[in-house]
Amino acid sequence: MSDKEMQVQQKMEAPQSGEPTKPERCFIPAVDIYETEEAVTLLAEMPGVAKDGVEINLENDTLTVKGHKAANGGSDERSLLREFETGHYLRRFTIAETIDQEKIAATMSDGVLTLVLPKVEPAKPKKIEVQCG
């Protein structure tokens, strides 16, 4: 699999809930989500976002991941070639009930955000005896 040649993924603009008033752009970060027995792990690609620029909100089972990109490039530079756009990142996810919302942990390294969403301890099956009347 590692012999595969990588392709460029075009950035998709994130849908905004309302008309934008600032000349800023928001993109949908590419994500990988995988599940193991203990947790669900989410990886989001947000190049240009520092650790302090990440904002994660959890509200009514909706997880919002925002990445604020720091300004890059000097203003007195002349652009010769532009193949990627820069902007902020925004994506929302719905969290299943099996996730322990108190124990979500996030780390950021090299422009990739890793969110570990641990699962709650499985509720023990309860057997209900049917009594004879």
Partner: peptide, 29 residues
């Protein structure tokens, strides 16, 4: 606006000032 059609990873932004050329690439992870 960025030119679409760059298919070879990584996408590059190239700029210059008086003394330098800057090549920027998004290489997350």
């Amino acid at each position: 606006v960025a030119r679409p059609g760059a298919t070879v990873f990584p996408p590059l932004n190239v700029s210059e000032d008086e003394h330098h050329i800057y090549v920027r690439a998004e290489v997350p992870g």
